[in-house]
Nucleic acid binder design. Structure first.
Lengths: 335, 335
DNA sequence: CTGTTAGCGCCTTCAT
DNA sequence: ATGAAGGCGCTAACAG
């Protein structure tokens, strides 16, 4: 593999000049720059990442932390990762994955200590996540994807789950619904303490109270059988809900509703919040999409800002936007 | 951050001695070892990754390559990544994610050239994947997860999709079925050229011919509407299939079948191949699970072997094992 | 505008 | 069983 010395020799300049061409840290005559760039191309030269980081420069690597158990419940994880990687590459950064270790915190310590990365992004935040104080103590630059109970001065960005839920309630209330069901995240997500799960419920509750509507709250389940049971109980309650808000993807739920003999939106209005692009549905559901691209772009920006030294506790709560599909109708008159 | 010199000073030994304690490359008296280890603990010393890699040692990082577009079709990806990360950590390796760039091959060149990783693992292989010749040319140690048409001497491991399909056909034939439907991967996966999609179909075809049964082959679709349409056409064909093999997860399919008035297994037997752990189904389906843990463990082993210098073109095709659920019954007599 | 040089932290050969 | 010293490839301070 070619080194900076090889390039310098071939271009007939000093190694430092090559370095300066690369880093743009002082002015270079067009002629020299041209010669150096040609030599770089000819030799397919790439700076040695280890040497760079040793010299005190950046590793240009961002660590991505996610607890091992989160993967089970969050199939969206992969979408986030793809977008995070793109966003990081846009700043010439790579992503180092920190999911495989039992102990999330040790893993961060290790990476920070051995300077494998310049900073971290933290996914699947629990309400009281041990990684938050650890990052603080390590003084390792980081951005949180998700809102912990206490960010302890770390920057974070998140989707406004509470706002999305409130918006859905408001929209349904405006259409005339007075009995609204809220199907929250799955049992597993609640049990892990994933912060967005209760936040969405809380948002819905507040707005329901303000709008004077009754909210029937249940959780979803990954077990189809359980889901059917809970749905039946929900629909059988008296007074029965005339609209359903679904937090996140419970792809089977519309099918279950139909299976129980309800048609959408005639018998039941439906709104999905924090939704993923939906290919499976027959009819365009009213929804607020989870803005994955925007979230990841912001997360990377915040992490890089933290690396640059701004110890900002900036946070970005991305507002929900409701796309009205064809799944909201006025409530059917009780017969 | 502490350096090796700090540790040496604190332990009252030479830096090289500390290094030897760390790398175990020569015998150390118990006393010195103890002293050094204490100093390491006291200072929470961690070797500088960049310095190590500069010195010619390993980076202890494995790159993980997946094309950007694959994420859309393979929700399983995240499971693989989690397991790969665990497997890598078991060998004290970290994972660097290569998904964010438009050009997968450039990305590999870059990482190999700048020595950000010691080797790579390659996911979502297309039948003729450009990464294979590129890795060959770069002489970058790598293991493929998936079987390309031509591995060009690179080691690979994969699930025996053809065998799994054949096994399913055989089992259904043995139960008396003569008209078997095969619901293959989705249009998207076929279009991307993901290698497992056609392999499973081919395996089913070969076994069907050998067993003298007729095979109705369709592809699945992520669109629920399309899926319903195709399923109806399939069930309406004459002679109608009495059993269905589902390649990979089409979670909605059992529901669709039931929705069309078929009960499982009375009206229709069902076998799932390359299945993911199923939480959503009412009844335990006959299935061969995709052995994710085993695949990822093997992939890491092969990659590390390649890094160690064995230029083996070893490959590991992991055989399918069928779990008989309660979804296979003899075909219903035509009425 | 460009060249020379020191040193980042580690491993390893050579010497003891 | 342990030390001393050189150099991996790069950047930045210092010279010109």
């Amino acid at each position: 593999m070619a080194t900076i010395a090889d390039v310098a020799r071939r271009a007939g300049v000093a190694p430092s000049t090559v370095s300066y061409v690369l880093t743009n840290r002082r002015s270079i005559s067009p002629a020299t720059r041209e010669a150096v760039e040609k030599a770089i191309r000819d030799l397919d030269y790439r700076p040695h990442a280890g040497a760079r980081s040793l010299r005190g420069a950046r590793t240009r690597v961002l660590a991505l932390s996610e607890p091992r158990d989160a993967g089970r419940y969050q199939s969206i994880g992969w979408r986030f990762v793809h977008h995070l990687s793109s966003a990081a590459r846009a700043h010439d950064y790579d992503l180092l994955l920190l999911t495989g270790e039992d102990n999330v915190v040790d893993n961060l310590r290790r990476v920070a200590g051995s300077r494998l990365a310049d900073g971290a992004m933290v996914m699947s935040l629990h309400t009281d996540d041990p990684r938050v104080p650890a990052l603080r103590e390590l003084r390792f630059p980081a951005a949180l994807i998700g809102k912990p109970r206490n960010a302890m001065g770390l920057p974070w960005c998140d989707f406004d789950f509470a706002g999305a839920a409130a918006l859905a309630v408001r929209e349904l209330a405006r259409a005339g619904h007075r009995q609204i069901a809220f199907v929250g995240s799955s049992d597993g997500e609640f049990q892990l303490g994933l912060n967005y799960a209760p936040r969405a419920v809380a948002g819905a509750r507040v707005e329901a109270k303000a709008a004077g509507v009754h909210l029937h709250v249940i959780r979803s389940s990954r077990s189809h059988r359980t889901m059917v049971r809970r749905t039946r109980a929900l629909l059988a309650s008296d007074p029965a809900p005339t609209a359903v808000i679904i937090h996140y993807d419970v792809p089977a739920l519309p099918s279950i509703l139909r299976g129980e003999g309800y048609s959408i939106p005639e018998d039941l209005s439906v709104v999905v919040i924090a939704a993923t692009p939906d290919l499976s549905s027959e009819l365009p559901l009213a929804r607020s999409e989870l803005p994955v691209e925007e979230m990841t772009r912001n997360a990377v920006e915040l992490a890089l800002a933290a690396i640059e030294g701004d110890p900002s506790d900036e946070h970005r709560l991305i507002p929900a936007r409701l796309t009205k599909g064809q799944s909201i109708a006025p409530p059917r008159r009780r017969s």
